[in-house]
Amino acid sequence: MLNKTERQKEQILRMSGVNPLKCMRCGKCSGTCPSYDEMEYHPHQFVYMVETGDIETLRNSDSIYKCLSCFACVDRCPRGVEPAKIVEAVRLTVIREKGVSRITPNEIPALLDDETPQQLLMSAMRKYNK
C-alpha cells in the first residue's frame, strides 16, 4: 500500500503529466519566472520537491498562489519538463479540499472596480476555488 505522500505524488504526476526525472536542475525555469521574488519555492524546486516527496511543504506555502500561469517556464525549459503544470497540480490538491478556497465568492465584491473584466473573475474562480 502506498502511504499518503506517495499517493499525493502519484496524483500530482498523473494530473500534471510531468516527469520530474527529466529535470536536470539547471534552474532556467526559475530564472525566467516573473514571480520569482514573490515565491518562497521556485518552479525548479516544485519539480524536485514533488519528486522527493516534500509535498506538504509546497502545499502549505503561498508560492502555489503566486504563479501567473504565464507558461514562460514551460516554453523555456530545455528538457520539456513543464514546471507550471506541477505548480498548478499542487495548488489543485489544496483548493479541491473542502473549505480551502483561497478567495471565496463573498470576498470578491470588495476587490472589484467598475472596469474589472469578467475574465478576471472567471479565472479567479478557477485558480482559487474548486
Binding site: L111, L120, K127
Partner: peptide
C-alpha cells in the same frame, strides 16, 4: 512577450502592479 501578471490582481495586487509596470 512577458506576462503582465493580470491573473493575480485579486490575490496579490502588488505583484500584478510590479509586472504590469515593467
Amino acid at each position: 512577450n512577458e506576462c503582465c501578471g493580470g491573473y493575480v490582481i485579486l490575490e496579490d495586487a502588488k505583484s500584478a502592479e510590479k509586472k504590469s509596470n515593467k
